[in-house]
Design a protein around this nucleic acid. Structure first.
Lengths: 132, 132
DNA sequence: TTATAAATGTTATATTATTACATAACGTTA
DNA sequence: TAACGTTATGTAATAATATAACATTTATAA
């Protein structure tokens, strides 16, 4: 079992915001939303984001430069992440599929390189957008 | 068979540079390198990059905000990309593994969403860096 | 309790990317 | 070839994303 991380003040403010929103948030949108709580500078946001990513409470959606709360309770560390992204409505959700994660975690090619981490982003149209 | 794309002047200058370098290049580094060829503004670079990505001549390494020439002659369109990235020396190479690409292209979960595209980035230490 | 690490606050600045608008080159087909 | 639509180019300004550097405070643990 992983040590439970107790979040610092800024980390908690920022995590709570992202978690409540339920969707990917961008750093400056986060900044705007927490200014009333006394977080005034981008760096304060980025530092909290860095830490939250490091401990697996949030993930960065690289293709969108945005951050989403981890939706997978067992995922303490961001070493194996997969997301589905709708290219129309930009809805993002984390994929929890044990076959997929096993397949990718064990993947190796002929380069002799051992992978310790991966990030996978799938793109397409979500059900709603497809039926429009 | 895909129509062969004939690159425009700027597209060709920028593709040749990235292709020759053999490694991921960042937009402003590209800009710096092509200024002697008359490309003076960021937008000229980004426009060419967008087009080159669209037609599959280059790929964007999302976690690095960098662009690398496609190393897979059969890959005309960037719909299914996988890369291995060394977190120490930042060496990047494109993974061409038909099992992997088949697995991912056919992947579907219970969301009912059909994926038309994916991008996968593996991280670790390359052989050289591991043995240091 | 003291020293070490982690987090915070603040200013400035670096890096990455796009908007808006004007013009030129290219490809099609009437 | 002339006219049209499309693609590419040029240029300036600015928006959006992220980090450097430095001073200080708070938390943790020996």
């Amino acid at each position: 079992m992983q040590k439970e991380h107790s979040l610092s003040k800024n980390q908690k403010i920022i995590f709570d915001l992202i978690d409540k929103s339920g969707e990917p948030m961008k750093a400056y949108s986060i900044l705007f939303n927490v200014q009333k709580k006394g977080i005034k500078a981008p760096l304060q946001v980025y530092r909290a984001l860095d830490k939250l990513v490091e401990i697996g409470k949030i993930h960065k959606i690289e293709s969108r430069n945005a951050f989403i709360a981890c939706q997978n309770s067992s995922c303490q560390i961001s070493k194996a992440t997969a997301f589905s992204i709708c290219e129309s409505c930009e809805n993002v959700s984390e994929i929890s599929n044990s076959k997929l994660s096993k397949y990718l975690s064990n993947f190796s090619d002929d380069s002799g390189m051992k992978y310790s981490k991966y990030n996978l982003e799938f793109f397409g149209l979500c059900k709603k957008c497809k039926s429009k």
